[in-house]
């Protein structure tokens, strides 16, 4: 028992290393603050392009979505991070991570919004257009408000996934929470920083998980 406490919950190590973890947390938050909105906006664009119901465009959108859903995000990240410099494109690390994870997540957000828009019956479009509302007005005042309710659980779920996926940035030496926890582990020869990082993630994300399982249950019960 003592061994376990000494090893995984070592307060001395924690006291020494917590500034590291806080730095990492801050970087993780920065990544989230940039990637989540980028992903949502890109996803909305994808869904709106789809809803024009112009066949070739719809196909392109589906290909885009399925293409990026087929790659593990880590593969995409490594490809962009190591690949771009080879062709002379030099972008900052932060931008490379944001680009890779946004491409990945925009396909998920796009699919969610697309399904949400699809879930609104045709009659709603026709009713709105018949009163003289334009395409974007119909979208904004009639379709999106209804779709938003339907997609809230999936949206929350995907946002949770995006936040978790920022941990992949540690693989390309981005100093976010997991990366700095590993560095701290290396410096102290003790895994307490890893456990602490896990605890931080849990405290951060647990409310979201609770909220989500409630929403999902209500969704299914409503059918």
């Amino acid at each position: 028992m003592d061994l376990i406490v000494e090893t995984f919950f070592n307060l001395d190590v924690l006291r020494e290393m917590y500034p590291f973890l806080l730095d990492g947390l801050w970087m993780t938050l920065q990544l989230c603050i940039v990637i989540v909105p980028c992903g949502i906006v890109a996803g909305l664009c994808v869904a709106i392009l789809f809803s024009f119901r112009f066949r070739p465009l719809s196909w392109l959108v589906i290909v885009y979505v399925d293409f990026f859903r087929s790659f593990p995000p880590l593969v995409l990240l490594i490809f962009i991070y190591y690949g771009l410099p080879f062709v002379g494109v030099d972008i900052p690390d932060f931008a490379a991570v944001v680009l890779a994870l946004t491409l990945n997540t925009s396909s998920y957000y796009g699919e969610i919004f697309r399904a949400g828009i699809e879930s609104i019956p045709r009659g709603q479009w026709e009713a709105a257009r018949s009163t003289g509302l334009g395409f974007l007005q119909t979208m904004r005042y009639v379709i999106v408000p209804q779709a938003a309710r339907n997609v809230a659980p999936d949206l929350t779920s995907n946002t949770l996934e995006v936040i978790k996926v920022t941990s992949l940035a540690s693989v390309v030496a981005m100093p976010e929470l997991l990366r700095l926890a590993r560095v701290a582990q290396g410096l102290t020869y003790n895994p307490t920083p890893l456990i602490a990082a896990a605890a931080i993630y849990f405290v951060l994300l647990w409310p979201l998980v609770r909220l989500l399982s409630r929403m999902e249950r209500r969704m299914i019960a409503g059918r």
Partner: peptide, 12 residues
């Protein structure tokens, strides 16, 4: 296991 990033779990 829903809240923790899989990579964190794997690394632990």
């Amino acid at each position: 296991f829903r809240a923790l990033p899989p990579l964190v779990i794997m690394i632990i």
